[in-house]
């Protein structure tokens, strides 16, 4: 008896699944997607790189400069575990998470959050592969 009731209910009800690329689910405010860093206000303290559990953040120097103060964080998204610890420890709160979750890319360039001084062509190079 209950089987017939379930069948009838399911005939008239809509499917629960979404047609993904066309329909998208609304993401909650706290969702942790792709990392963004506001490099203008970053002071280059390096706390994020020290605290990262996945060792996904490296501090890089601008070309020609070697001093410790001009280093800026570079995030390897393919290593990132999206725990948000870097955003938590950042003293200037410049690290935040967007709602972008489709992070697949064809090259390493697309999977890196880099400071503006890192040249485009260099992003897949030796400099990024270490660390």
């Amino acid at each position: 008896m209950s089987v017939i009731k379930e069948v009838l209910r399911n005939i008239i009800s809509r499917p629960v699944t979404l047609k993904y690329p066309q329909e998208r689910k609304e993401l909650p405010e706290r969702f942790r997607g792709r990392i963004t860093i506001d490099y203008d206000n970053c002071i280059g303290c390096g706390l994020c790189a020290r605290v990262c559990p996945a060792l996904a953040i490296t501090m890089v120097n601008p070309p020609g400069k070697k001093d410790i103060r001009s280093r800026r964080p570079l995030v390897h998204l393919y290593k990132c575990i999206f725990c948000g610890q870097c955003a938590l420890v950042c003293p200037r709160k410049v690290i935040s998470f967007t709602h972008e979750y489709e992070l697949a890319s064809y090259d390493k360039e697309g999977s890196v959050v880099a400071p503006p001084f890192v040249k485009k062509g260099n992003k897949g190079g030796r400099e990024l592969s270490k660390g």
Binding site: P28, R30, F31, R32, I81, F82, C83, G84, Q85, L88, F97
Partner: peptide
């Protein structure tokens, strides 16, 4: 899972606990 995502920011690995309290 939607509820957990709303509270913590992720469906499975919540990262809500931290030593000395919770994050959200």
């Amino acid at each position: 899972l939607d509820l957990l995502e709303m509270i913590t920011g992720n469906r499975v690995l919540y990262a809500i606990n931290m030593i000395g309290g919770v994050r959200h």
